[in-house]
Amino acid sequence: MEFTEDQLQRYSRHIILPEVGEKGQIKLLKAKVFIVGAGGLGSPVGYYLTAAGVGTIAIVDNDNVELSNLQRQIAHSTKTIGEPKVESAKNTFESLNPDVHVIPIKQRLTKHNILDLIRDYDIVVDCSDNYATRFLVNDACVMSKKPLVTGAIFKFEGQLTVVIPGDGPCYRCLFEEPPPHGVLPSPQGAGLLGFLPGVIGTLQAAEVLKLIIGTGEILKGELLIYNALKPSFRKVKIPKNPDCPICSDHPTITELVDYS
């Protein structure tokens, strides 16, 4: 493919980097990324992937924009309160970069629709806000062998890892199942420092871009933990669980589970 004059200018800081170059930029423009959630994490993930020229971005979320979202969900604005989050995000992203095709999916992900929805995408990014979806997305990615970049936040702490099915551990190797209701405090009632999703979401975008371009090391087999108050970044190992219920060679989960 040939770059237009505008594209050469828009992506010049990528193109002059030997680690990206024209080749890497073409990979970005051809890439298809699926983002789960158009909230705190989905906003910076979608924003930076759009700025980088990722050609096709699907974003799934069933909610509408509320005033209380705007403290952190930067894909939305005062003007889009009441609109579906995925439409609001599409407008924001496409006005940043018209090269990018944003596909808004106003639905709740379920065990019935997820495999079909992610089928045509190269990478899945989990920016969801509940345990049930996180386990569903992991299992669907393992089953369909899609790389998964998963990030989560709580108050002033964040977690991040990358799952490459068939090459290292999955999210269930780390946490085998979701907590029963009420055992851990729910993120909805807890409060959250507004910049926190910006830190974790931007790191998720970085992992996605490296996966597409094929450069650098990927954060797999490790969990990165950020604490904004310390402030500190720490990593702990995630060994592959030889008895993982989904990614081992003798899985006990053979069809998707709906925990919600």
Binding site: G37, G39, G40, L41, G42, D126, C127, S128, D129, N130, Y131, R134, G151, A152, I153, F154, E157, G158, Q159, L174, F175, P178, P179, L184, P187, A190, L192, P197, L223, I225, R234, V236
Partner: peptide, 10 residues
């Protein structure tokens, strides 16, 4: 010793 629970906010 670190205690690391699953967190789920987004």
């Amino acid at each position: 010793v670190s205690i690391v629970p699953a967190i789920a906010g987004g």
